[in-house]
Design a protein around this nucleic acid. Structure first.
Lengths: 100, 100
DNA sequence: CATATACATAGATATCTGTCAATGTATTAT
DNA sequence: ATAATACATTGACAGATATCTATGTATATG
């Protein structure tokens, strides 16, 4: 698997539209045309954002016929989450504690 | 306390120099002049980066005499970490598990 | 086959961003 | 008081980025 690039992931999440897309995908897998309905952007712009998200590793792209189904790459998201955790410098164990 | 703006935090971490600064601060509090030594940037550029980091909420700025001591705002970092965790859509409990 | 749909690519453009040099402002040291 | 140090601000500029329109490509549907 590709190495996690934390800066690239942060850049990918550093845009309001992309952040919203990721939030929507964290709920469940969605196709591009479904995502497009929820935003006030053109299809090429969405395509641009999806490319950045996929290239960051955060999002998977599964093609099925003429549809593209996007979903969160949970391995990468977990890796990113654990990385952020290391930045907490937390001795109390309060950072990203297990459970829900 | 100020509300956590996840996009702003991601933007702040979405630059290689700022990411490195945050990594250095996660070790321990450091003053600006000490940080400056470690980078190939001018002092105004560092000042610019520190402003972005402080405004994102991720970094605290404590003034002491003519020095500015920067440190991680662990509350904000924890909040951000927990936010990322919600994006994992993880039912296995593997995301950001407790302990070390 | 002809048309519609889903998505990508190319090119243009306005805005944002990282960087620098120059300069200003406190604070410390001599 | 003078000089040095730590940091901020201003203004300029090159490169990155988000967005659009126009167009291309593949797949599904009639």
């Amino acid at each position: 698997m590709a190495k996690l690039d934390e800066v690239l992931v942060c850049k990918a999440l550093g845009d309001p539209n992309r952040m919203e897309i990721v939030k929507m995908l964290s709920d469940q897998e969605k196709c591009g045309c479904k995502l497009l309905e929820k935003f006030d952007i053109t299809q090429p712009t969405l395509s641009h954002h999806m490319k950045i998200l996929v290239e960051s590793g955060l999002v998977n792209d599964r093609k099925e016929g003429k549809w593209h189904y996007y979903s969160i790459n949970t391995d990468v998201m977990r890796g990113f989450c654990n990385f952020i955790k290391t930045l907490c410098n937390d001795t109390t164990g309060k950072c990203c504690k297990g459970g829900s």
